[in-house]
Design a protein around this nucleic acid. Structure first.
Lengths: 225, 225, 225, 225
DNA sequence: AATGAATGAGAGTTCATTCAT
DNA sequence: CATGAATGAACTCTCATTCAT
């Protein structure tokens, strides 16, 4: 689909590159920032390096993001944007049992979050949240709360349908979250929590934990592996 | 017991201070450093602040510890010194079943480590280990390896006595360690993994996890709740 | 040649400054550094002062040179770069007698090195070499060795042509170097070796020393004043 | 010769040691300081190290010498004290020819100064004099001026007796001083001025230079090798 | 829009000097 | 007298952020 620009592109490829890039810029910066934040943490990531990895100059970074903190927030937004809406829709449409729903939630979390670079952001927040309260608050409201709300939906659905026992739902949420967080850490701080020589299969671990958690949550009649 | 000095102290508190300090200094500095490292992490803790919290000047800190990294190592040593020897002795003397021994290990870990400030150092290492490889190596050799060795002893005792199934011991160690690490994190990164409104009772959690783990480790005859 | 900018310059000197600076910076910094190193020595020269003299801030210095030691090396390189190549070429082309060549060498050394600020670097190395072994090694390989090699060429030419006596060439080199070093010191440590009230004419001194040295080096037939 | 103290010494050896030491203290400090100043230079010598080498504490150093600069001055005084008076007396008593006197001066300078640690102080002053103007002034008035005065006596004696040509005496002084200074430097900055592999025999060098200088100074009738 | 040179507050570390003991 | 713990100014080097171009 030829656009007006595609014509100019041919005459002036340099400019074209620029123009195309212009739109891509923030995205490239966010990519680079995600990489580096995950690799080194927030404080230890230097703005200049983010810019360099995105192939732009330091100044350009601050053109798009007024500060390192805002850059971080944008990274989070970029990676979370629409996710919860999408998941809420999937859940609306989900027709199986709630135990199956929970299994699905956990598996899908691993596939779409845990296994991706973004899980490094979770680790980063655990590591540096105390030092950057504003970021912690942002992450809390942007990720933690929506995530918990999602899980709450699942648990309440289970309870409403008689599949799950009546329970302190907050506690239930936390039971589901715990293994995810552990996996995240195991993945990103290898040397300290997991012996490097011992491999840990995440899918297997998640599946196992799902059953364990379900064992605790379900009514006798509600449970179905 | 009022001494002559206690009287002088009131008139001339500075003098008293000096006298008391000389020997207490390193300990006070290690206390302050532990507090701050746990609170802010390694990189974000400023030497001057450690000194200030210990009530001395920047220069004094470097009188006792030649660098921030050495200060950190000293904090670790101070809090680990003798622990593993002591535990090994306790284990030598332990006469109960190995499942009981494991329960004991986990409970005692919580009491003596997890519940104390020092658990913050574990969290710190998970957070910043990548950025300070020398510290990571030190922690690995000073804490992680001896800790794993200790657990290995327990597991091998269980296997030898027929209480535990034959297993990949490394994997077993990791199963035991996982909940400890999770608890550590939950404690030190409140906002992120655990919803502040939901309290998590550590003793209860540890006890529960001990049973879960035992469920996986024990032979049918070896298990005794 | 008045350009449009020269007009603007008067209205907006800051802008002009910036533009001029970008490329001039490293040179300005090297100039300032040479001045200060010569004036105060290496250790006593503060980075900030170098920056200030070059009209920039502390940070800017480190933008161009990653450390004070590298700055020093750059100063040496800047002032030595190409010199030895150039001299070797001059020597290749030299057609006169070897005694004349030696006279030329010494005179030209004074003109191009001894009389310039750079001779202060030689003094600096004698003063502080022991405290900065890496710099000493650098200077040794970058200046002392090439310089000695150059002199060796001269002496060996003289021997080969029968103008100089067979000799321990190393010793000969040192005989030539001695007065240069003395002059350097006399120049840069006025108060100590030379009474300030007594002027010492360097050209005259060098010429005299050249003859003295030649007296020792030449064969009867080779010598020609 | 038993003094009252020698009695006490036997009863209380520790105290005796102290008492004896007390008198020796400043001397030990001056010894240590000389060593270190020569080895590292003035600025790079740490007060604490001087104290340590003298076997006392940092505080004690400042008990005897109110500052590092005063310590340095004391080192100079200690090593120069009485020297010039002594030499003046030797010169008063000297009965030989003035050329012999000059030979004697140079030889004796090497034996009593050049060959000793103290020559390092001369090198130090050349190195750091610019950075410590007060020390430079002190050294100038305490060493340089008296030394030059001594040489002036010799030269003027030679002129008066018709052995030396009438001359600019200041220039003559400097001709005598130059080789001494060079030797001093060659000794203390080996790597830079003299190739380590080439040994330079100081006595021989001094003797040679004496004759060279005399060649320039003497009247035809006055000269006698 | 994009650049990258420039900034300057602030970090860890050193050391001459002081002073309570 | 002697100590050595304590100080704090000074140093080198870093990096988020600015702004003239």
């Amino acid at each position: 689909m030829p656009t007006p620009r595609s014509f100019v592109d041919k005459l002036c490829p340099v400019r074209a590159k620029r123009e195309r890039r212009k739109e891509a810029r923030p995205g490239e910066l966010l990519e680079a920032a995600l990489d580096l934040f995950v690799e080194k943490g927030f404080a230890a990531t230097r703005s200049e390096e983010v810019a360099a990895r995105a192939g732009v100059s330091k100044g350009t970074l601050f053109l798009y993001f007024p500060s390192k903190e805002e850059l971080f927030k944008a990274v989070v937004r970029e990676n979370v944007a629409g996710r919860f809406i999408e998941w809420n829709q999937e859940f609306d449409a989900f027709e199986g049992s709630t135990p199956d729903m929970l299994r699905y939630v956990m598996r899908v979390w691993w596939e779409r979050v845990g296994a991706t670079r973004f899980s490094g952001i979770t680790k980063l927040m655990m590591s540096e949240g105390n030092n950057f309260p504003e970021l912690a608050a942002f992450y809390q409201s942007e990720v933690v709360r929506p995530g918990h709300a999602l899980l709450r939906r699942v648990l309440e659905r289970g309870i409403a349908r008689g599949e799950f026992k009546p329970m302190d739902v907050n506690l239930g949420i936390y039971s589901v979250v715990a293994p995810m967080i552990f996996l995240t850490l195991a993945k990103h701080s290898s040397g300290i929590c997991v012996d490097p020589s011992t491999a840990l299969d995440p899918e297997q671990y998640i599946a196992l934990q799902a059953e364990t958690v379900l064992g605790g949550l379900c009514t006798p009649t509600g449970y179905a592996a």
